[in-house]
Design a protein around this nucleic acid. Sequence first.
DNA 1: GTATAAAATTGATATTTATCAATTATAGTG
DNA 2: CACTATAATTGATAAATATCAATTTTATAC
Lengths: 266, 266
Amino acid sequence: MQQKISSDTTRKKKVVDLHVIKVACNECSLHQLCLPRSISGTDLEKLDDIIERKKPLKRNDHLFQVGSTFQSIYVVRSGSLKTYSPTVDGQEQVTGFHLPGELLGLDAIGKGHHPCAAKALEMTSVCEVPFVNLEKLTQELPTLQHQLLRLMSKEIFDDQELMLLLGKKTAEARLSAFLLSISLRFKQRGFSCSEFYLSMSRNDIANYLGLAVETVSRMFTRFQEDGLISAERKHIIIKNRDDLQKIAGINEYCTDQTKKDSQAVL
Amino acid sequence: MQQKISSDTTRKKKVVDLHVIKVACNECSLHQLCLPRSISGTDLEKLDDIIERKKPLKRNDHLFQVGSTFQSIYVVRSGSLKTYSPTVDGQEQVTGFHLPGELLGLDAIGKGHHPCAAKALEMTSVCEVPFVNLEKLTQELPTLQHQLLRLMSKEIFDDQELMLLLGKKTAEARLSAFLLSISLRFKQRGFSCSEFYLSMSRNDIANYLGLAVETVSRMFTRFQEDGLISAERKHIIIKNRDDLQKIAGINEYCTDQTKKDSQAVL
DNA sequence: GTATAAAATTGATATTTATCAATTATAGTG
DNA sequence: CACTATAATTGATAAATATCAATTTTATAC
């Protein structure tokens, strides 16, 4: 239960680190966690004190393996990762994609080890937050605890939205819901929601959606023919969001704020 | 942010309630939350103080509606519920089933309102835990906070297992994974894992798994013909767990503890 | 740059699953 | 108990998707 991580004495001075984090984490989901409005200067230093920067991961590097002991939660700073579980027949099943500002490892707190592996899809850097330290700190800072609970709740909420996605019957409904989901997540981090790069392969997408690669490829082609999107390899442009939403057949993923609000009411 | 619930003065005496809860919650997931080993007698009273018993729900009664403001998390004491979201075309999509000892409402903490509705599948009773009180109490009791985080993490973990289920390609893989999942959950609560009653309709199952009702029905028939299960209406007997697991094609849901352990190691 | 490997696309076919329609079984109600 | 509505099953057919095979494109290594 002792953490070796914070015994690292070669770390740069707090103040400098903090400054960098403050700037870079502007659109990060940990932003709320790291820098609640009400937090005081000394509290902020305490929090900064427990956050580590991992050295960047290269494509296909693992952030953690299946079954590895849980020590920290991670926030994607840049790049992206996929999480996956091994299946009986030696294949892997992709369980999620993690974009900048999103969290990894929350599913491991309960059991003490990671139920899935996390692999970088491209050059990726993450922040590491040793959990024992974070938990200790939440006892001192009630706002921090509240933020942590909110973030975990959001994770549960997001997972359930993805279950809605995977519960869809047709391949086109799944793929369009997937694309809208990615689009929304980019938007939430301050990126364009109508134009973005998919870092994951068609194979990963197919695996994740429970479809054959060929089907996914054909759907991409069809969506292009129908003028719904432009897909140049990994470069995606959403050209007709409305129709995509109709195909997805769910009101969960709409980026239109008015719709989202009306949905929230009863 | 004020809670009207605890202003109820007609509630029975603490000590009596506590006793009942202690006995009945033996196999409840809130057991860990309610009654951590290290908790002292007075702390226990404090905790008991914030737990409410709702009056039992009849079949098709709602525990909460979509969009209703979040106030409490709930634990299923007996019976069962389904959660579902409305889709654009006026249909509903089932997002989960909740068996005795399982939690509801954790997905609502972040946004402050319930993203899905919860409806009783049969006569059902739940415990209600007003969240502001719980959160306040965790500040006093570090063990309680730890348990709460563990439970939320477990929820995330469970959701991801279900995503594995829904990501499966074939109908038979989905249904067998579903049955094994239910079986495991019953086992975890101390019920039989080889014989149980499904409280949800075939329609709900199909909806949840992203399949047509007819397909689900046919799969039930096929599984019976193959001697995998016995399905007399809602009464299910698992007759050949090994083959079911092969069909499910994943090692996540195995109830065999040895397999589970070996899986945990890298 | 070329060679090689990996990823993505496309086509043809077989399998699976949804849909439509009808029947049977079950549960709820007066 | 009969009556009604709902749920579940079964069969036939159409539609969707997986699989197999081949090709093209892109990425990576040398």
